[in-house]
Design a protein around this nucleic acid. Structure first.
Length: 223
DNA sequence: TACTGATCATTT
DNA sequence: AAATGATCAGTA
């Protein structure tokens, strides 16, 4: 009996607020699923548990979690210091077919247009069933945040177009990183080489750096 | 502790 | 292979 999809932002936020303070163990019981010992082989487990409770259109379909509302769900692991423990994966970076692509049309901008952030205790010494869910935050980028994201995106995409994808490190970009996003190091995809010729390289993804998500959460709790 | 490359499961 | 959901774990 999975909850039905929320029909409004308000309904979604209210539902998320009701999860705050509960543990992953409690939520797993309600969902009728078992809790893994750790996340080593179940890295997406927390996200999928929250999807179930919030009535997200689950699965790996390339649509927003709450398609009708245009909202993306992101769980974010929080440490004892109250700050994110991990970077946040946003989406895969396009490596070819980039003609005419702009920030305004980019997949990443649409993904980040409206996000429901759900903080979850993430320290590894807290047993998974005992970790608490925090207060949700329904977020859209501020003007400054959007400009930061746009600048980083344009810098990274310029390098990709110029065939320099393999020279990109996680330090190119103030708030966005480009890093491998693959099943393993053998998974390859097509990209532009330095002379415009096609090359095979690891699929890359855009990740939000922890200082960016930390600031975004902090902005909320200060306001 | 941040950065980095590598990895895990599942579905389409 | 690419999309969904991310964290792991070595090292500088």
């Amino acid at each position: 009996m999975q909850p039905s999809p929320p029909t409004s932002e308000h309904a979604l936020l209210e539902r998320a607020c009701n999860l705050a303070g509960q543990t992953l163990g409690e939520l797993a019981v309600q969902a009728g699923i078992s809790v893994p010992m750790d996340l080593r082989r179940d890295k997406g487990w927390v996200g999928q548990l929250l999807e179930w409770h919030l009535g997200a259109s689950a699965g790996s379909k390339p649509v927003p979690d709450f398609d009708n509302l245009g909202i993306e769900l992101k769980t974010i692991p929080i440490g004892y210091n109250g700050k994110p423990l991990e970077t946040t994966f946003v989406c895969v970076a396009p490596l070819i077919g980039l003609h005419g692509l702009s920030w305004e049309k980019s997949h990443i901008r649409h993904k980040l247009a409206r996000v429901l952030w759900v903080p979850v205790e993430g320290e590894r010494d807290i047993p998974l069933p005992d970790r608490h869910v925090g207060s949700p935050l329904l977020w859209s980028p501020s003007e400054e945040e959007e400009q930061q994201l746009r600048r980083d995106w344009e810098e990274l995409m310029d390098m990709i177009v110029l065939g320099q994808v393999e020279q990109i490190t996680a330090r190119h970009g103030e708030v966005l990183q480009l890093r491998p996003k693959a099943a393993n190091s053998r998974a390859l995809t097509e990209a532009y080489g330095a002379n415009g010729q096609p090359i095979k390289t690891l699929p890359r993804g855009f990740y939000l750096k922890t200082h960016f998500t930390a600031a975004l959460l902090e902005r909320y709790f200060i306001l």
